[in-house]
Amino acid sequence: MRDPVLQVEDLSVSFTSGGVTTDVVRDLSMRLDGGRTLAVVGESGSGKTITGRAIMRLLPRGASARGRIVAAGREMLSADERELRRARGSDVAMVFQDSMSALSPYLDIGAHIAQAVRLHDPSVTRRAARARAVEMLDRVGIPEPADAVRRFPHEFSGGMRQRAVIAMALVNRPALLIADEPTTALDVTVQAQILALLRELQQEYGMAMLLISHDFGVVASAADDVLVLYAGRQAEYGSLRDIFEQPAHPYTTGLRAATPRLDARLDSGGKRTRLRAIPGAPTSLRDAGPGCAFAPRCGLADQVGERCVVEVPLPTVRPTNEDGGLHLAACHLDRLPALQEVAR
């Protein structure tokens, strides 16, 4: 079997402040092969962004990661600064939600991309790096690339800036791209274009993609596999099909039922459909009690009883529709009752 591009084993991330250490992510595991997309879905406090940053070793001050991360054959958690510098951009690249903060207002677009090229390979001449930048801008669909390299970030629209950032991230053909809410700040039509572009480039380069998102619509249109996070822990993991057709965690079904649908049907009385909201607000691992973090908001917790509030459920194997697919859910219920009911 081929080695995965990304393998994460028992990743925990903690913050230390004022001498107190608290975990924000605990015991995450995942694997991702080349050419595949794994979507990490969650809300505030779920730890999805921190997980992405931990893989890049781009954690904020005071945060530390334990466990094991192997990205493109490199042990990321034990790598020294020199190795990390080599890995970032060349093996693993990242695209953020806010393209403006990823670009320097003082440099033209070409300089950003050329810099990425020359950091990766210092033997490339300035002129050649600049030429690569033009090529790359053309590849990501920016019109008149020879002219666009001389433009500054503020002269671009949000969608064009995100394309430029993608060009910068992919110019060295990384094996893994981490995209943290890459389309959240964009209009829907532009979002669709950017997602299509990412898919196209992924196929062309055989790249693995970790797509961090809060939006099940985006996930459905882009992911092969899905990892649902709640309060810093894995709630459910499975193929897109398993997650949609036979979800095994009440949070997964709840999240989907809370997502407004374009085809929302009118019920018989001509009244509008109500969304099935999840009561309460998302929490973080820090504020979670001793049991399942979702229990206070879970409509099924009282069916199980006290176990939900005293014991953290571990991910266990669930039925799958895919050949050899892995489907895990961290819930004390073996089966969700009346699944279609809940999911609609």
Binding site: V188, T189, Q191, A192, L195, D215, F216, G217, V218, V219, A220, S221, L240, R241, F244, E245, R256, T259, R261, L262, D263
Partner: peptide, 22 residues
């Protein structure tokens, strides 16, 4: 939403990702 007439509306409807299996 059932039958958008203007090209702008159609583009918006088509681009809106649905939380459904492709």
């Amino acid at each position: 939403f059932r039958s958008p007439q203007h090209s702008c509306t159609r583009a918006l409807v088509e681009a809106t990702p649905e939380a459904e299996l492709p």
